[in-house]
Simulated assay, not measured.
Amino acid sequence: MDALYTAVATANGREGRTVSSDKQIDLPLAHPPALGGNGQGTNPEQLFAAGFAACFASALGLVGRQEKVDTKDVSVTAEVTIGKDDSDGGFGLKVVLRVELPDALQGEIGSKLVEGAHQVCPYSKATRGNIPVELIAE
């Protein structure tokens, strides 16, 4: 792979901080209340959801430009769930991507854009075959 950009961040656990090398991210980390924490910080699942949603929205824009379709009013919400992995007793993730499409992109054209974005999005590529990802166009 010909590298175009490398993001660097350091974290010291779920009850600490995460800081990017350029200091654009400097956040406290905490377990969410659902996992027994105080919720006084972000968590890896929220950060992953934010990254996946942003990347997928960008991929949708790329596919839209290729198809000559305006995607400026499209938004993507990622729901990242952590739970017990029955196969090994550890933890696993699953993702639901909710793509909100304007009326003009409902139906076949919207579905084509969403599927196209899922093929080119680096997060989609990284998760494909590793965790369940559900696409919902609404």
Results as ranks from 00 to 15, higher is better:
1 M>N: 10
6 T>A: 11
7 A>T: 14
8 V>T: 15
9 A>M: 09
11 A>P: 04
13 G>Y: 02
14 R>I: 11
15 E>G: 08
17 R>H: 15
18 T>N: 05
18 T>D: 12
19 V>M: 01
20 S>C: 01
22 D>C: 13
22 D>G: 05
23 K>C: 14
23 K>W: 04
23 K>P: 06
24 Q>W: 03
26 D>R: 05
26 D>Q: 08
26 D>K: 06
33 P>C: 07
34 A>D: 11
35 L>W: 03
37 G>K: 00
38 N>V: 05
40 Q>G: 11
40 Q>V: 04
40 Q>Y: 02
42 T>E: 09
43 N>K: 00
46 Q>Y: 02
47 L>A: 09
47 L>H: 13
47 L>Q: 11
47 L>W: 08
48 F>S: 00
50 A>L: 10
50 A>H: 06
55 C>R: 09
56 F>V: 03
56 F>T: 08
59 A>N: 10
67 E>W: 01
70 D>A: 10
70 D>R: 00
71 T>G: 04
72 K>N: 15
72 K>A: 15
74 V>M: 07
74 V>N: 07
76 V>L: 10
83 G>W: 05
85 D>R: 10
86 D>A: 15
87 S>W: 02
88 D>T: 13
88 D>H: 14
98 R>K: 11
98 R>D: 13
99 V>W: 06
99 V>H: 05
102 P>T: 04
104 A>V: 14
107 G>Y: 11
110 G>F: 06
116 G>A: 02
116 G>K: 00
118 H>F: 07
120 V>N: 01
124 S>G: 12
127 T>C: 11
128 R>Y: 02
129 G>R: 13
134 E>T: 15
134 E>W: 09
135 L>D: 14
135 L>T: 13
137 A>E: 14
